[in-house]
Amino acid sequence: MTKDPLIDYTLHLADNALVLGHRNSEWTGHGPILEQDIALSNIALDQIGQARYLYQYAAGLINSSTTDRGAYPAPRTGEATEDGLAYHRDGWDFKNCLLVEQDNGDWAKTILRQFFFSAYQYFFYQQLAGRKDGELAAIAEKSYKEVSYHLRWSSEWVIRLGDGTEESHRRMNDALDQLWRLTGELYTPSSYEKMLVAEGIAVDLTALQPLWEQRIADVFRQAGLTVPALGWQQTGGKEGKHTEHLGYLLAEMQFLQRAYPGNEW
């Protein structure tokens, strides 16, 4: 496996953005109402756009890397590309958090997943924009504006659903039961994050956690929802140990490029 933590870190960020973007894109054409279908599709496009910048950067790092190139599939051309990284890696190569790969469930689950992750990305990109790696900092600065809107949109929905009808409140609590145990991973640094924090490249996640918790508490208070105790938390996604949901997602997302490598529209 590779020894370059910056490549792993960049792929981790790219995978987060791509996987959640793909999940949200599954709603396109199925949204509860046309306007929200478009809103969520816009968010999906923002995230896939962020993923593209990050994969392009990762591909460049891989191609100029002297460490084991075999750790990254580079089909056909022999060069790593953004498409190769997105479509030709297997589940255990993906380094996204478990939260973003969870199935869409109902609207409440999709909203809560987005809210948890947008609140994380909001503070994360803010910090990353001031870190030492110029490329990552630039991507973070651009993405921060997009994520600010995602956070605003998902916060309002959490409040509407939590403080809405009996049914919407119940559905939010069901979603909370399913997703809460996956939020701890956001603040559990992986091996490559630990290495890069010391170099001033990666964001220090322990500093982020209280900011995230405060934001969740603020919105939950308005939504009439109760923040659960931390409890047991499932981790592993950042190191390639995923839940059963990722495989199904990749099977659909990667099918075309796996069946017809290099195919174009």
């Binding site: 306007e35 929200q36 478009i38 816009n42 605003r152 949109w153």
Partner: peptide
Amino acid sequence: SLHAADAAMAIENARDVYTR
């Protein structure tokens, strides 16, 4: 025109539908 539950959501929906 578009559908929304209230004015705040209408402005957000308008942002997503008409200012892309």
